[in-house]
């Protein structure tokens, strides 16, 4: 497939704030394609989640730009950005608890006029997550944490996105379920060509699942590299993954 057929999402020197003048992000630049999984790691308050919110138009972008395939999508409204193929799975459980699994998925296609298409996409989600088909008529609150995470991912798949922004996919999940969620994320990328940009507190597992990694601190990109490179990098181990890494001397930077 020629390169031009792969969509590219990029941030160019983006400075963003929630309250005008109080910048959370300082000149963030990053780029991912539909073929990649990228992971943002870093300490609390580094601005990881803010990067995703800036892309979705949920912050004030004070300077810099966000581009999707060359089109400037900075300052667009969330639903306009969704229409262009970027979906967002916010942090924490954001399912509708008193609605059934099917109703939750159906809400994912709310902005689509063609409800027949929505039903077809729901079928595709059921094929991808058979457990959701099994529980399609159950109220969402009755499902486990991992299953609820699948509802959230399934719900944004209804719009057939090119990119999916996922905030802390593994938060609050048991290790076994966490592994399953990362496997699903990888298969979304490999099988459906959805570019993934995720924020992950669980840095090692996040980087293992990713092609690209960005280490954020104080609203800046401190390191970037392939997931494997970052996992090996002693400085990152020492600063962000806890401890000095195996058999490595503890040297100052």
């Amino acid at each position: 497939m020629p390169i031009s057929e792969t969509d590219i999402l990029s941030l160019n020197d983006v400075e963003a704030s929630y309250t005008k003048g109080v910048k959370i992000l300082h000149a963030i630049s990053l780029k991912i394609t539909q073929k990649e999984i990228a992971c943002l790691i870093g300490p609390n308050g580094a601005g990881k989640s803010t990067v995703l919110k800036a892309i979705m138009g949920l912050t004030n972008v004070e300077s810099g730009s966000i581009n999707l395939n060359g089109e400037d999508v900075t300052d667009m409204k969330p639903h306009e950005i969704m229409h262009r193929g970027i979906s967002y799975v916010p942090q924490g459980r954001t399912i509708f608890p008193e609605m059934t699994v099917w109703e939750n998925l159906r809400m994912g296609g709310f902005i689509l006029k063609d409800k027949h298409l929505v039903e077809n996409r729901i079928q595709e989600v059921f094929d991808m997550f058979p457990i959701l088909y099994k529980y399609r008529n159950q109220k969402a609150y009755a499902l486990s944490g991992g299953e609820q995470q699948m509802i959230e991912m399934g719900r944004v798949l209804i719009l057939d996105p090119k990119f999916m922004l996922i905030d802390e996919p593994s938060i609050g999940l048991a290790p076994k379920v966490r592994k399953l969620v990362f496997e699903k994320i990888i298969s979304l990328n490999r099988e459906k060509s959805i570019g993934i940009l995720m924020v992950e507190q669980n840095a090692v597992q996040g980087l293992e699942a990713s092609d690209l990694g960005y280490v954020l601190d104080m609203g800046r990109v401190r390191f970037r590299g392939s997931g494997v490179e970052l996992l090996k990098d002693i400085r990152i181990h020492r600063l962000y993954l806890g401890g000095g890494g195996k058999d490595q001397p503890k040297t100052k930077l």
């Binding site: 969330p78 639903h79 969704m82 916010p90 954001t94 509708f96 608890p97 709310f110 719900r155």
Partner: peptide, 10 residues
């Protein structure tokens, strides 16, 4: 049930 999420979904 979740005003913010509903808004994000359009």
């Amino acid at each position: 049930q979740d005003r913010d999420t509903a808004q994000i979904l359009g």
